[in-house]
């Protein structure tokens, strides 16, 4: 009986298992091999040992792209998650017609990324854009955004604040799971809104915050499309922006693989990315160990 159910279980799971072997496991092994070769698609791969990895160490653009991506992850992820949490707190208030506001905050998240990125290119236009117009109204500085190497990444982060809908919904669900009695008890103890947030809400949703941070971190390390389209020039694909300030890791990897056809070098870069993601996740888990609160089940 047990034996039969194993084969049955495997049979039902077989679509994923086959897909995993063909589209993930074999490619992972192939990628490890390609990373040790020079390969341009047209000639057979040439084994070069660790040369690709050594080359990376002295490749300025590699370091630049790694810096850009780490910048977006370390600076951008906390900012956009904080924005999502603030939105979730506001959208968790009990008022009639709340669904309407939730719909509006989520709406930008369903706009196709290509359309959304061009919309922001227009909004961030240094001369005719509305963002600078708004800043001017409040007598604030008006950066050149996409034309100024210092401001391209803040522009990307600003854009990401518009599409925090998924994280917002997850936070909202977590907020709804916080038992009402805890707040009542805190009220009896004379806690104000901030101290309730700090000592009741935050600890109870901390596992969800950690989860979202890991997910957002991994996604940001893979950042590609927005940087590609924000630095897109006419007829020429992506330029990487002024001073390569938008040349994120995923973009440089793409250029090496599909523009320069350096499949070997790009594969080596992919492995470095995998390690960066792994190390980042482990560091995050370690750092959060004493800060995340797990209620017993």
């Amino acid at each position: 009986m047990a034996h039969r159910s194993v084969s049955r279980g495997l049979l039902f799971a077989s679509p994923w298992i086959i897909g995993f072997l063909v589209f993930q496991l074999v490619p992972i092994l192939a990628s490890a091999y390609y990373s040790l070769t020079n390969f341009n698609l047209f000639q057979d791969p040439q084994f070069v040992g660790l040369h690709n990895y050594q080359r990376m160490a002295s490749d300025e653009l590699f370091w630049k792209s790694l810096f850009n991506t780490v910048y977006l992850t370390v600076v951008g992820v906390p900012i956009s998650l904080a924005a999502a949490l603030v939105a979730a707190l506001a959208l968790n208030m009990r008022v009639p017609g709340q669904w309407f506001f939730r719909t509006i905050v989520f709406l930008p998240t369903v706009v196709p990324v290509v359309a959304a990125t061009y919309i922001w290119r227009w909004l961030l236009n240094a001369q005719y854009g509305y963002v600078n117009e708004a800043l001017g109204t409040f007598h604030l500085g008006q950066p050149l955004w996409l034309d100024d190497a210092i401001w391209t990444k803040p522009a990307l982060i600003l854009m990401s604040l518009w599409v925090t809908g998924s994280a917002m919904i997850v936070f909202l669900a977590a907020l709804k799971d916080v038992p009402e009695v805890y707040y009542e008890a805190a009220t009896v103890d004379g806690a104000g809104a901030w101290s309730k947030f700090r000592h009741v809400t935050l600890p109870l949703i901390s596992p969800v915050i950690l989860f979202e941070t890991i997910i957002a971190g991994i996604f940001t390390l893979q950042y590609f499309t927005q940087a590609y389209l924000l630095s897109q020039t006419r007829f020429n694909g992506a330029s990487g922006g002024p001073d390569n300030s938008l040349l994120v890791y995923g973009l440089y990897l793409f250029q090496q693989a599909f523009v320069n056809l350096n499949m070997g070098y790009a594969s080596a870069m992919a492995w470095v990315l995998l390690f960066v993601a792994l190390i980042g996740t482990l560091v995050l888990l370690r750092l959060s160990r004493d800060r995340v609160f797990y209620a017993g089940d």
Partner: peptide
């Protein structure tokens, strides 16, 4: 957790 870049090229 696996970045798609790893499998994309092969």
């Amino acid at each position: 957790m696996l970045p798609p870049q790893v499998t994309m090229i092969p």
